[in-house]
Design a protein around this nucleic acid. Structure first.
Lengths: 278, 278
DNA sequence: TTGACAGATGACTGGTTAGTCAGTATTATA
DNA sequence: TATAATACTGACTAACCAGTCATCTGTCAA
């Protein structure tokens, strides 16, 4: 399968020139394959970028999620969090460049929704880390601001080694940001971002999700899949969508079945947010 | 003159679709003029985006610069700074969107240089504000980090009202960020960004480094250092640069001597890549 | 009414793009 | 070795793009 090769080479080119400025021809030349071969691995250029985003962001977000979930002691968690983030960015700097360059791009609807989804996933992890670190009560008022500040630190300091090839002392950087975060968490008294404001930002995404749209995509997906656990899960989830019968646990389990399969990953997200919503 | 009209309509479209995804045809249709008329006002599509960037950034940076320069009292300065920034972003939200979307774009060399120039201008203003606010000595060590944090706050909180049309309380936002900035300025003890690092970012791209540029910086560094192993190493490396005499091992050792000193870390890197290159 | 001229037009050019498909090469199978 | 299946090729299409230019139009002064 040429998929791996194409993705690797495409990442290099996208990082250097941007997604839109890189043609499929260029990618295939860089791989030493023909243009037709590209379309054997990917349905379109858009599908390629989405698979790239997925490949890295699933790794990235699950690494952070695992870090936060499995943390016992407080102080090290924050350090490990920053270290892991910047370490990942440094290791996959080409992908990092793509992420920053194209993050607010609007060329493809699926792409935007995807990016927003991973952004939310990060927000969730950071928020639960903040609650874990400082106690739910202590930072109740300013925890959303804290999430924003942490993300601000991440994005600003990431740009340092993404756009200037300077070797950085990740240990010092993490320590420095741990101190800053602690300072803000323990001494801030003027919150700006309230729960209500946060909810306002989350609204638009879910708003667009109608049962019909999901059903449409669901049918389409079921059609394309061969017999498998994934397909069974989708069929059951379709039943649940039309007529709620299962409990929370079963739904969660079914979603888990399809979350790691590349073809159903996305529908898992859609269904997940739809069931959450209700 | 149709220039004004074209710029206004183009900003709307660029904000919505991005620069590359918007065609000249679309712009002229949106203006109700012919395609030819566009080229009476602008030599090219690139010239249009550069004029747009200039038009707003000149206003923006000079407003901030004036604010910082003419400030008498400390506390209000920071508040006014944040308020002015967010107020501008809110007033010209379409331009703000373009700025964020295209900031790290690489389609046009002139464009990148322009953006970098205005970025540096902002950095300068913020830095002189920080020095003014907290005293040159008090924050000597962490002032560059502070600049980064302030920019991080700006970019994160700007996205709030750029991408979700939520009416925001600029007064509260500014107060909240003033508190956060003060907390960091007065209590941070672990700097990450050193003078040397900052200078690294201002450096042209590494590949273009000439011997003369390195020598210039080397002299400067030797001047500033007191007698030490580091200084001796630098002097020897300067000799080596002018007239290669030492072997590989000695150079490596000398570089190692200066690699861990904060003030010479950067020059170590520069020299390292220069010697590697040959 | 005439003529001159700046301003405006839109068909056209040369080039690039994503995506297709009839056909070829390679490999597996019998 | 023959056949079938699979992987691959690259010329081709249709659409779109930035930018040009011969032509036209409305508005003046003479």
């Amino acid at each position: 399968m040429k998929k791996q090769l194409i993705m690797e080479k495409a990442i290099e080119l996208f990082a250097k020139q941007g997604f839109e400025a890189t043609s499929v021809q260029q990618i295939t030349e860089h791989c030493g394959i023909s243009k037709g071969a590209f379309y054997l691995s990917f349905k379109s250029k858009d599908e390629l970028i989405i698979e790239i985003i997925d490949h890295f962001m699933i790794q990235f977000t699950s690494e952070i999620d695992h870090l936060v979930r499995s943390a016992k002691d407080g102080e090290n968690l924050l350090y490990n969090f920053y270290y892991a983030i910047f370490n990942s960015f440094q290791k996959h700097s080409d992908f990092g460049k793509i992420l920053i360059k194209e993050q607010s791009r609007s060329f493809n609807e699926d792409f935007i929704v995807k990016m927003r989804y991973y952004d939310r996933l990060m927000d969730k992890s950071i928020l639960s880390m903040v609650e874990h670190l400082y106690g739910d009560d202590e930072v109740k008022e300013i925890k959303y601001d804290l999430v924003f500040c942490i993300k601000g630190f991440m994005s600003m300091y990431s740009q340092l080694f993404l756009f200037y090839n300077v070797p950085l002392d990740l240990d010092l950087l993490s320590k420095s940001l741990v101190e800053k975060t602690n300072l803000l968490a323990r001494n801030s008294t003027v919150p700006f971002i309230s729960k209500g404001l946060i909810m306002a930002f989350e609204e638009p995404v879910l708003e667009d999700l109608t049962k019909e749209q999901i059903l449409l995509r669901l049918d389409q997906e079921i059609e394309e899949l061969e017999e498998s656990v994934e397909k069974e899960s989708l069929v059951l989830l379709k039943q649940q969508l039309n007529e709620p019968t299962f409990g929370r646990a079963i739904i969660k389990g079914l979603l888990e079945n399809i979350r790691n399969h590349p073809q159903t990953k996305w529908i898992a997200y859609l269904l997940g947010s739809f069931f959450d919503q209700k």
